[in-house]
């Protein structure tokens, strides 16, 4: 019973996203917003595995996303646009970067981990800016969207919408499965007390590293999708501000359950857009709103139903 209850909200959320084009949200502009939220949601889900699962607060997650996007660029410049090559390149490229940097980073924790992930991400950011073949700081406009078996499926807005949704739901199921497994149990235990876990005979390092690599692969996939959504890639994809945004999505959404990351991504993207319409100084309002949300939403957006139920009873 509790398992069904846990899945009810995220399944409702996915159903709503699936129905969106048919219930008045079918405009191109709205769909591209939703696609953007779902894509960032995939990256945020990977970050949830790290922050909510392993207790590793990364401030460099956008670098992994950016590497996924730049894999599309590199192949595009070489006139390779077939998804069969592009998508694995994005996932594996980001996962490889995660493996190499994570091998150092996951041996640390707390503030040190934040600083190391930030430092590696800044390195990747500056490298991306110096790649003049791919436009340097100005970025790179794709010749076209990625093809699947030679056909331009992704040009179709609805196809792209449902592709993003399917991958988002898959990422959500993957993270939930991992967290509940033996592997995830060791991760969660090491977050609560690393010494206790070592005293049981577990070395937390390989568990954390694998989680970091999986999260990297997910961010890489999101990067490939984001490059397709905008048909443009720039070093700003890797900027620390975007890493901060991803972290905010995860925390605002709630660390208690993976769908928090999805809620957080939707809330951030839509709120940002809405406030942006309203005033040019939207960041001035956005910041305090986030602070209030973190202060008053104990379990984040995902914990809101339980919090409301509790308030209703009390």
């Amino acid at each position: 019973m509790p398992r069904w209850r846990e899945a009810a909200l995220p399944l409702l959320l996915f159903a709503l996203l699936g129905a969106a084009p048919w219930i008045g949200f079918g405009e191109g502009y709205v769909l591209s917003l939703l696609a953007r939220a779902m894509i960032l949601g995939i990256a945020a889900l990977g970050l949830h595995l790290l922050v909510g699962g392993a207790g590793l607060v990364s401030l460099g997650h956008a670098a992994l996303l950016g590497i996924g996007a730049y894999a599309v660029v590199v192949l595009d410049a070489a006139r390779v646009t077939e998804a069969v090559w592009v998508v694995p390149a994005s996932i594996l490229g980001a996962a490889l970067f995660a493996l190499l940097t994570g091998a150092v980073a996951v041996r640390t924790s707390g503030v040190q981990f934040i600083m190391i992930t930030l430092a590696f991400a800044q390195m990747a950011f500056f490298i991306a800016g110096s790649l003049s073949v791919y436009g340097g700081d100005d970025g790179y406009t794709l010749y076209g969207r990625t093809e699947l078996f030679g056909r331009r499926w992704l040009e179709d807005r609805l196809v792209f919408h449902y592709l993003c949704l399917a991958l988002l739901a898959g990422a959500w199921a993957l993270v939930g499965m991992l967290l509940a497994s033996r592997f995830g149990r060791v991760l969660r235990a090491a977050r609560e007390n690393a010494l206790r876990v070592a005293a049981l005979g577990f070395n937390p390092v390989p568990y954390r590293l694998l989680a970091y690599v999986i999260a990297g692969g997910m961010a890489g996939l999101a990067g490939a999708l984001l490059a397709n959504a905008t048909e443009f890639v720039a070093p700003s994809y890797l900027a620390w501000q975007r890493s901060g945004d991803l972290l905010f999505m995860v925390i605002l959404g709630g660390l208690g359950a993976p769908h928090g990351a999805v809620l957080g991504a939707l809330a951030m993207v839509l709120l940002e857009e809405w406030l942006g319409h309203w005033t040019a100084h939207w960041r001035l309002i956005f910041g305090p709103l986030l602070i209030l949300a973190v202060l008053f939403l104990k379990g984040g957006l995902a914990g809101l139903p339980a919090q409301l139920r509790g308030a209703g009873r009390g």
């Binding site: 497994s181 592997f183 995830g184 390989p206 694998l210």
Partner: peptide
């Protein structure tokens, strides 16, 4: 092994 990923522990 605890590197098992599929079944809920």
């Amino acid at each position: 092994s605890s590197f098992r990923f599929f079944r809920p522990a």
